[in-house]
Nucleic acid binder design. Structure first.
Length: 672
RNA sequence: GUCCCCGUAGCUCAAUUGGAUAGAGCGUUGGCCUCCGAAGCCAAAGGUUAGUGGUUCGAAUCCACUCGGGGAUACCA
């Protein structure tokens, strides 16, 4: 049972005579909360105060009447009224014990599935996440979308929703023009045969560097000119006498500061550009290709465009490259334990794009402007371009086609996009456009379709700039995984060697544990910190195995399981225990209360699609278990009834931790 | 220029979406293994929630302005 939801229902019933408006009633009933401080009880209701004005009475009196009308004595001790009218509720121990019994007997731990009585209605979700570019190695920037999307999908599914996951991979863009060009001009046949993915990655990097180089050369004069202009502007501004009037002075100083920043930033950009050009020029291996391919940028675009119009040679190459590229990302997903129901990338939608454009034109939603086909939308300064002057389609076009496909094939209630926040404007455009399109063309009709951009912050380095290695490339995702596992292995070995009775793990088992612990740490660091602001990447933090980490929960789990192992209590024996749970010790009661909040944590996680509610809950639960573990002996309890009661608390704790972590895509181990 | 996001302990982040004395982790200081696993537990120090005004029973949260940071900004994705 979701105790919070039940209390809200009880309050709604008690409030109904005073509050006829259903919306207002729901809002007031929603003011039942978990208490922040145990001294205020387990839950508190804050709805008396807002009624003060509506009823024109003292809020404390309202609280008194409300408590009189409230029927909760099967759940709680008599409510207490505090301060201006806070109503504090404390659950009865016999109620807690009964709920624990129920959860213990249920494989779903007492969590009602959607669609069942009293639970939320079942919905169908499409979750779009990860979406890497398959032509280049996955890097650290891909981890957030992948891990968050996976956790949300698992959580929604467990709650009872229908979930369709779809990896919208980048398999049709300019990157393929680059590797096709690279393959035609620079490939090492032997290397390609031996390891196609590695060779293609090398070619991608090589071509990318050459293109960047020529691009940089072309930009250099412009940038230098810009700097000179800004410098002279600054000089002129600085030479002018400062105004004496206070506001004007402030403005002038501000303008000066802004100019100084501009000059500094342009100067830095220029220096960086010169350095990168010099690096390429100083690289003997690049001298030949550089001289021989001066027009590489346009040539790459030409290869891309040949692919798009169906050129036989390029299409054949693309078909040849795709399997190893897909196998490469599949390998990473296997290591992460991430799966998808579908992998329908950009290429899948190519033959639908012209139809999308035609349909939008037909309904008057799109028109030509400066040679490009644009969708102009109310409330936006700029249009969304769906076809370029040269006839090429854009990612906006693909995204429209993708929605069209998803609604016609899958009929979802919601589509969730787990994507970097920098694409916010794109999604605002896209959602606005598709709503218009639906009105004109009945893509999904009158039913409600929730389109949601679940944005997250960019992964930045510790210098607050996009994460890079010393050589200037993004950190490969795989090297991060290796590092996480390597570090976990060191810690596992150290801890095992230090055990009082000597090491107990074989090398093989240590490796298996390190795998689980390392990947878990990596995922958890991301899930626990799901904010919309940027994310400072730090090896130390991401791979930490202490404090609020997945390791903490895994450790708590292993300690529970160790009790069962020491006591030689099999799972079957645990399941047969039926002794009433006794909550006389404060740490027992606190643990029990936390165990029953699992359902609330899941609801919160789903309500705003934020796994960090779940991580916070699991951290809290593991903490309560640690307190209990320190205070209460289980195997050496004073009497058999207490022992059995505590064994049952341990059992439910272990199962809740295991289930909660599983929803985050994190495994547990029996020993570590 | 315009629009969007953000500013909370030394650092990285929470705060149940307007509730009571703003909480964790890391780091710092001190304590706890003869006792089911110390990857743990307990305690201490650390805050004008960037600032000013407003809204109300009540503000980190909502509104206005100021300061500071980031992002986006017609033909990359």
């Amino acid at each position: 049972m979701n105790v919070l939801a039940e209390l809200r229902r009880r309050f709604a019933a008690a409030l109904a005579p005073w509050v006829p408006d259903p919306a207002a009633l729901a809002e007031l009933a929603g003011m039942v909360r978990i208490s922040q401080d145990p001294k205020f009880g387990d839950y508190q209701a804050n709805c008396a105060m807002p009624l003060k004005q509506r009823l024109n009475r003292a809020s404390r009196d309202i609280a008194t009447d409300l408590v009189a009308a409230l029927k909760v004595n099967d759940l709680c001790h008599p409510p207490e009224i505090a301060g201006p009218g806070f109503i504090n509720l404390k659950l009865r121990d016999d109620f807690l014990a009964a709920q624990l019994n129920h959860a213990l007997a249920d494989p779903r731990l007492g969590i009602a599935a959607t669609g069942s009585p009293g639970a939320a209605p079942r919905r169908r979700f499409v979750v779009d996440y990860s979406a890497p570019n398959v032509a280049k190695p996955m890097h650290v920037g891909h981890i957030r979308s992948t891990v968050i999307g996976d956790a949300l999908s698992r959580t929604l599914r467990f709650a009872g929703h229908e979930v369709i996951t779809d990896n919208h991979i980048g398999d049709w863009g300019t990157q393929f023009g680059m590797i096709i060009y690279g393959y035609k001009h620079f490939r090492d046949e032997g290397a390609y045969r031996a390891n196609p993915v590695a060779e293609l990655a090398r070619l991608y990097k090589l071509v990318n560097r050459l293109v960047d180089y020529h691009d940089g050369r072309a930009r250099l004069p412009e940038l230098a000119q810009k700097l000179a202009a800004q410098e002279s502007q600054l000089k002129t501004a600085a030479a002018e006498p400062l105004p004496t009037e206070k506001n004007a002075l402030k403005k002038a100083q501000q303008a000066l500061r802004r100019l100084e920043t501009q000059v500094r930033e342009t100067g830095e950009a220029l220096t960086a550009l010169r350095a990168s050009l010099a690096a390429v020029e100083g690289d003997a291996a690049l001298a030949g290709p550089l001289a021989a391919h001066p027009k590489i940028a346009t040539a790459v675009l030409a290869e891309t465009s040949k692919l798009h119009v169906g050129d036989a040679e390029n299409l054949a190459l693309w078909r040849e490259f795709m399997p190893p590229c897909l196998e490469e990302i599949a390998r990473i997903y296997r290591r992460l334990g991430v799966t998808f129901d579908h992998t329908l990338g950009e290429s899948f939608y190519q033959d639908r794009l012209s139809g999308v454009v035609a349909d939008l034109k037909k309904h008057g939603l799109a028109r030509e402007s400066d040679g490009a086909v644009c969708v102009f939308l109310d409330g936006f300064d700029i249009p969304m371009i769906i076809q370029k002057q040269d006839g090429a389609f854009l990612y906006a076009t693909t995204d429209l086609a993708t929605i069209q496909y998803r609604v016609s094939e899958w009929h979802p209630d919601a589509i969730l996009y787990v994507v970097d926040h920098r694409q916010s404007l794109h999604f605002e455009h896209l959602f606005a456009a598709v709503q218009q399109w639906n009105k004109a063309s009945h893509l999904w009709g009158d039913q409600n379709l929730e389109l949601m951009h679940l944005r997250f912050g960019t992964v930045l380095g510790e210098d607050r700039r996009p994460i890079r290695t010393r050589s200037g490339e993004s950190v490969a995702l795989e090297s991060l995984l290796d590092e996480a596992i390597r570090k976990a292995f060191d810690v596992v070995s150290t801890k095992d060697d230090a055990k009082p009775e000597g090491a107990e793990l074989l090398a093989d088992e240590r490796r298996r544990i390190a795998d689980v612990v390392g990947i878990a740490a990596l995922k958890y660091a991301d899930l626990a910190q799901n904010r919309e602001s940027d994310y400072i990447f730090s090896y130390d933090k991401m791979l930490s195995l202490e404090g609020n980490t997945a390791t903490y929960m895994q450790f708590a789990y292993a300690r529970v399981r160790n009790i069962f192992a020491k006591g030689q209590i099999a799972d079957a024996a645990l399941a047969k225990l039926s002794a009433p749970v006794n909550l006389s010790q404060p740490t027992e009661r606190a643990l029990a209360l936390e165990l029953l909040r699992f359902s609330e944590a899941l609801d919160a996680c789903i309500a705003d699609y934020r796994p960090n509610h779940l991580t916070a809950y699991l951290f809290e639960l593991a903490g309560r278990y640690s307190n209990f573990y320190n205070e209460c002996s289980v195997l050496q309890a004073d009497d058999p009834a207490t022992r059995d009661s505590r064994l049952r608390l341990c059992d439910l704790t272990a199962r809740t931790l295991r289930q909660g972590l599983a929803l985050l895509g994190i495994d547990v181990i029996e020993r570590m």
